[in-house]
């Protein structure tokens, strides 16, 4: 068995080069200027972008909460279906997930635009046209649409383990629906909720594609600003790294809040 331990050596080297060193470089860049001098000015410059940062967090929280509200009953309903229905419903949930998310977001572009499908239909019955795209609602909608399965799946996987007899026992003991949810379902689903919250919040708070496609440049998020520092016109990887560092801290804070320095089982979606 001593031999097999050495099998991990290539991976250890890999982790060092492609995970540890890059993160170290980000931290290094965040605290230096283009001349290589140690500085805090990138961090100070972040204050210009506080509004963007605040908006990113707000949008991500909104998307996460909406996902949770939609996903909770859905996951419960799936978990109480019979085995064959369960696997069919889960597969149906996965199909859109495996379609490139750019295409999914693009689909919403065509639905929401000024002379898009929804406004056409509304127009046919004499309403609108409304401004449905390029606003904060459209961005949050895009997040919810793209990441909703990330909330349903972990919730489902914990709920499916709740024995029907536990629920029946609670009902037998006189729990009404609200009490059943508050006293039984919610506590028992907690691990799934934390996984789901992280799985929706992290990609939402860091996205730059959804905000660009559905926000129309008026609702830039921190992801957009970071992206611009690396491949846009305002090339400044040092400032970009400082922003990335702040983003990482937000993510770490969220994870510690939900106690998710977890095991691999949590992410095996």
């Amino acid at each position: 068995m001593k031999v097999s331990r050495t099998l991990a050596i290539p991976y250890v080297v890999w982790v060092l080069i492609f995970t540890v060193v890059p993160l170290g470089l980000v931290i290094g860049f965040a605290f230096t200027n283009p001349d290589g001098k140690i500085t805090l000015e990138n961090i100070f410059e972040m204050s210009d972008y506080m509004a963007v940062l605040f908006r990113s967090i707000l949008f991500a929280i909104a998307a996460t909460v909406i996902c949770l509200i939609i996903a909770f009953p859905a996951a419960y309903i799936i978990s109480r279906a019979n085995a064959i229905n369960q696997s069919t419903l889960i597969v149906l949930l996965m199909v859109p997930m495996w379609i490139n998310f750019l295409l999914r977001t693009y689909a919403w572009m065509t639905l929401l635009e000024q002379n898009g499908v929804i406004n056409r239909i509304l127009g046919a019955i004499g309403l609108g046209p409304y401004q449905l795209i390029n606003n904060s609602g459209a961005v949050i909608l895009g997040m919810v649409y793209n990441y909703l399965p990330f909330m349903i799946l972990p919730l489902y996987s914990v709920m499916v383990k709740i024995d029907q007899s536990v629920i029946e026992a609670a009902q037998d003991l006189g729990s009404n629906k609200i009490r059943l949810v508050r006293k039984i379902l919610l506590p028992l689903s907690m691990p799934g909720i934390s996984t789901g919250v992280i799985a929706v919040f992290v990609p939402s708070v860091s996205t730059f594609v959804i905000s660009r496609m559905l926000g129309g440049g008026t609702n830039d998020l921190i992801g957009d600003i970071i992206e611009m520092q690396f491949s846009g016109n305002s090339y400044n990887p040092h400032l970009g790294s400082a922003m990335a560092l702040v983003l990482m801290i937000i993510v770490l804070f969220m994870m510690s809040l939900f106690n998710q320095f977890g095991t691999e089982e949590d992410v095996a979606l």
């Binding site: 982790v15 080069i17 492609f18 995970t19 540890v20 060193v21 890059p22 993160l23 470089l25 980000v26 860049f29 992280i198 992290v202 990609p203 708070v205 860091s206 996205t207 730059f208 992801g223 970071i226 992206e227 690396f230 990887p237 970009g240 790294s241 990335a244 983003l247 990482m248 993510v251 994870m255 998710q260 320095f261 691999e264 992410v267």
Partner: peptide, 20 residues
């Protein structure tokens, strides 16, 4: 260490590898 690429925002993985 294996958990980092899974939980790290993709954009951070992208830019950190870009810098590397």
């Amino acid at each position: 260490a294996t958990y980092i690429p899974v939980i790290n925002p993709e954009i951070i993985m992208g830019i950190s590898l870009m810098i590397l």
